[in-house]
Design a protein around this nucleic acid. Structure first.
Lengths: 210, 210
DNA sequence: TATATTATGTACCGATTGGTAAATAAATAA
DNA sequence: TTATTTATTTACCAATCGGTACATAATATA
């Protein structure tokens, strides 16, 4: 637009916004919203409760994040890039077995972490719901499907690299691991401790194909 | 149970009710309510939807079953004595391994049965929720706990009977099986087929202690 | 300074929530 | 028949749901 002013000075990276500035940090607020959705689920979290938890009046929430559905999706992105970022990292372990062990162990840590809600938001965000929450329910189903696909691909790679027998069915193994993972989430919401979850992981890893 | 000798009156097995008779069969209606709660969850099922699904006006529902919470509990009883009655039966199998195999196989059948909602009502009835549904959430957690206790006792018995090594930790094994079971429920709500669930069961049973 | 722009707080919207009052209908008992 | 009892229907309740109109406050620009 108007770059005539910028000729004298080096580029000013942060141009100031024009109107009244936001009274809150967007990411911090999304983390608070994540916390509510994570513990209550999509339907169980009311805009009134969100407004109070965020310390922001509803019109400001709608102005900054759109409607409830949009707020949920943005909180979900924070969940994936924050608490659950370890998942992608775990896949980089040298062998599939190590990758899964890392994945499930860190999942046990997260699901039972006392500084965050119990369990996995992608599992309990909208497992069942009324019709209005159907799009969110479908989105979470897709997320879980992607998780499984990621495992499948990791196992395919492991077969190529030789650390997994070639007769292993990658998809089936992925579904088995995903089932354990999701079961652990249910266990955690019911109050299972970190030690209990880790014992489950140990048992699940016992029959690793070799 | 009742060995009462009908001394006073000639046996009147069915005493007619005094006022206007119910226009519906209570158990049939509870099964319809079960169906709604099972697929929608406690919070996702509105009284309006229930009223329509049951074919009964709300005041009649309240008169016959109490409030929403009470209706849910009664539907849950139907669930346990109906679709899930096989659980207790499975425990009677001669060995713990056979019992668990039976349990999980039949769970796979039920969770993917196309004539009923997918997954397990006790898992997805109120995994997360708002505050008003807290009592129901707690009740379902207790149900899952009882399920685990039942498994633990079956494994203790198996250790006594010698079909399970004495060094096995019954509680840990029970939690592992419960985790698989609950994970299978999440898988089923996400659309997993019967075959896929059976493959998971097969993998889970592979590392049975011996 | 005045103006344009954006965010905030108050106060509200129609729709839906779980739940019920009151009139009426259908049965038994006297 | 008449009275009593119970169930159903219609119409409604206050509270809460997600969402917003509008006036005001705070900033950058001119």
């Amino acid at each position: 637009m108007n770059d005539a002013v910028n000729t004298e000075k080096p580029a000013k990276i942060l141009k100031k916004a024009r109107g009244r500035p936001l009274a809150f940090n967007q990411d911090e607020v999304l983390d608070k919203a994540l916390n509510v959705f994570w513990s209550r689920g999509y339907e169980g979290a009311s805009m009134a409760e969100l407004s109070e938890a965020l310390g922001i009046n509803k019109p400001s929430i709608y102005a900054a994040f759109g409607n409830k559905e949009s707020l949920f999706r943005k909180a979900l992105e924070r969940y994936n890039s924050g608490p659950v970022a370890f998942v992608g990292e775990a896949m980089k372990a040298p062998t599939a077995q190590q990758a899964v062990e890392k994945l499930l162990t860190q999942a046990a840590d997260l699901f039972s972490d006392e500084t965050t809600p119990n369990g996995c938001m992608i599992v309990q965000g909208a497992l069942t719901c009324g019709q209005s929450a159907h799009p969110i329910q479908q989105e979470l189903i897709a997320y879980r499907g992607n998780f499984e696909d990621m495992l499948t691909q990791r196992f395919d790679l492991a077969k190529k690299q030789g650390d997994l027998p070639s007769n292993v069915n990658s998809k089936q193994l992925a579904k088995y691991i995903a089932t354990i993972h999701q079961g652990m989430s249910v266990q955690a919401t019911s109050g299972a401790t970190r030690q209990e979850l880790l014992a489950v992981v140990k048992m699940a890893m016992k029959n690793w194909p070799s």
